[in-house]
Each structure stands twice: as structure tokens, then as C-alpha cells.
């Protein structure tokens, strides 16, 4: 049995799905982030001044890019897999001789590709406002890839456990968005009062955004090694949990 064909079929289907509806999937982040860069970066940022030696717009670009990667890798998998469940065409996969790991890899790959593609679009939009000089390409790419992987996995778990369309909007609206905004996209942690600095250190997104910022600008509020360790640990945990859900058939089998 050639599982690579099944994987390729699944990934192509997933990519084709979000490319086909590009006005809903690729265009909105371009417009939203252009407004971020214009309003926060140029109009307000010009009055804020430098943070840790870089201009305000250069400081927020990595956070805005990674925030887009997070939300789009997550939403791609959660909406695609939940729709597959809802329309019952998950049965097409369950009756076929596809191992659970291939199903997971197929959906997560779709999320990663969309997340990174949106990240690239946002990065290109940022070039209209400020030049990007990459400090460390390997860190930049690896952090973006790991972040997209982590949130694709999270989206997958959300979709598996969801029982209604409401369930797939709760996490993005009430967890992901607040954590992203409080993850140091628009400010440095040391700008917060001491108590909030300590609380912020419990936010995993803070580590990812700062690691990505380090890759692009060389500036960070956290230890990069800790950021890699934390992200890698979450990826491993969520992968095992996803495979366990598929093995038990929770949310997808009777």
C-alpha cells in the first residue's frame, strides 16, 4: 500500500480548498495587516519611538506576521476537518486504508501551508511600509514552521472534539486572539507592570513571537532555547493526543 499517494491526495485537496476560496482565506489578512502597519506602525508608531533599538514598525512586523500564521493555520484545519465531519465525508477517509498518522499529517500539512502562505503575504505587505532585513533566516523559518505546525494540530484537536459550529469559534475568539494580542505583538514585556510581566511569561505565544522577532530583528524578551523547547514540547504532546483521538475514534466514530 502506497501511503504517500493518499497523503499527497489529501494535501492537494486541502491546498486546493483554501486556494479556491482565496478571497476568504488569503485576501482578508492582507487587508487587515496593511491597516495594522499603517495605523499602528506608521501613524501611531512614529510617535512611540524605538523599542530595544528598533523602530516601532520594525518591532511589530514579526508579531503581526506570526499572529497571522497562528490564526490561519488554526482556522484552516479546524474549519476543514469539522466540515468534513459535519458533511460526513470523513467516512471517505475512514473506509479507506489510510493510517491515522497520514490523516493527521494531511490535514496538518494543509494548515501549515496556509499559515506560511498567509505569513508570506503579510511579510510582503509589510515591505510597503518598512524594509525587512532578516537577522537569522534559519530561526525565522523554523519558528514559523513550528508555530504553524503547533496551531494546525490545535485546530485539528478542536475540530475532532467539536460538536457544533459554535465549538469551532470559541477557541479562536476567546483563547487564541487574546493570547496573541497579549503575546507581545505590539509591546515589549518589560513595558508591562511587574505582575503582568510574570503572568505574560505563562503565555506560550509570547515565546513564539519573541523567537520569531529574534529571527527577523535580533531582538527578544525571552530565551530562544526555551521557546524552541516549549514549542517542540507542545507539538509532541498535541501530536500524540491527536493520534490517540483518531485511534479511539473519539468524535468521528460510533
Amino acid at each position: 500500500m502506497n501511503y504517500s499517494i493518499a497523503l499527497k491526495t489529501l494535501v492537494v485537496k486541502e491546498v486546493y480548498r483554501f486556494v479556491r476560496i482565496w478571497p476568504q482565506t488569503l485576501l482578508p489578512p492582507a487587508i487587515t495587516t496593511a491597516l495594522y502597519f499603517l495605523i499602528f506602525g506608521k501613524l501611531i508608531g512614529g510617535r512611540i519611538g524605538d523599542i530595544h533599538g528598533v523602530t516601532y514598525i520594525d518591532y511589530i512586523v514579526p508579531g503581526v506576521i506570526l499572529m497571522s500564521v497562528i490564526s490561519h493555520s488554526y482556522s484552516n484545519v479546524v474549519s476543514s476537518f469539522y466540515s468534513t465531519k459535519f458533511q460526513r465525508n470523513i467516512e471517505e477517509l475512514l473506509v479507506a486504508p489510510i493510517p491515522n498518522v497520514v490523516i493527521l499529517l494531511g490535514y496538518v500539512s494543509g494548515g501549515i501551508i496556509r499559515g506560511l502562505l498567509v505569513g508570506l503575504v503579510v511579510a510582503l505587505i509589510s515591505l510597503l511600509f518598512t524594509p525587512i532585513v532578516i537577522h537569522n533566516l534559519a530561526i525565522t523559518l523554523s519558528v514559523a514552521l513550528m508555530t504553524a505546525t503547533l496551531f494546525s494540530l490545535a485546530g485539528f484537536i478542536n475540530a475532532v472534539l467539536a460538536e457544533s459550529f459554535d465549538d469551532i469559534s470559541i477557541i479562536p475568539n476567546f483563547v487564541l486572539t487574546p493570547l496573541s494580542y497579549l503575546g507581545g505583538v505590539f509591546y515589549a514585556v518589560d513595558m508591562l507592570p511587574p505582575l503582568w510581566q510574570t503572568i505574560s511569561l505563562g503565555n506560550p505565544i509570547l515565546y513564539m513571537i519573541n523567537a520569531f522577532r529574534f529571527g527577523l530583528t535580533g531582538v527578544t524578551d525571552v530565551d530562544i532555547k526555551l521557546a524552541y523547547l516549549m514549542t517542540g514540547g507542545f507539538i509532541a504532546t498535541l501530536t500524540l493526543f491527536s493520534l490517540w483521538l483518531l485511534y479511539k475514534g473519539i468524535g468521528i466514530k460510533n
Binding site: Y3, S83, Q87, E92, L93, A96, I98
Partner: peptide, 19 residues
């Protein structure tokens, strides 16, 4: 099946799932 997929796409994808 996916109601937004074409007839050919549905059948072709299933062939892919079977390798």
C-alpha cells in the same frame, strides 16, 4: 461526499486515498 466538490474530484480523490 463533499457537496462543494466536483463529481470527478470526489471519485478521483477516493482513488488517491486507496493509493
Amino acid at each position: 461526499f463533499n457537496q462543494f466538490e466536483t463529481v470527478k474530484g470526489i471519485v478521483y480523490n477516493q482513488a488517491g486515498y486507496y493509493g
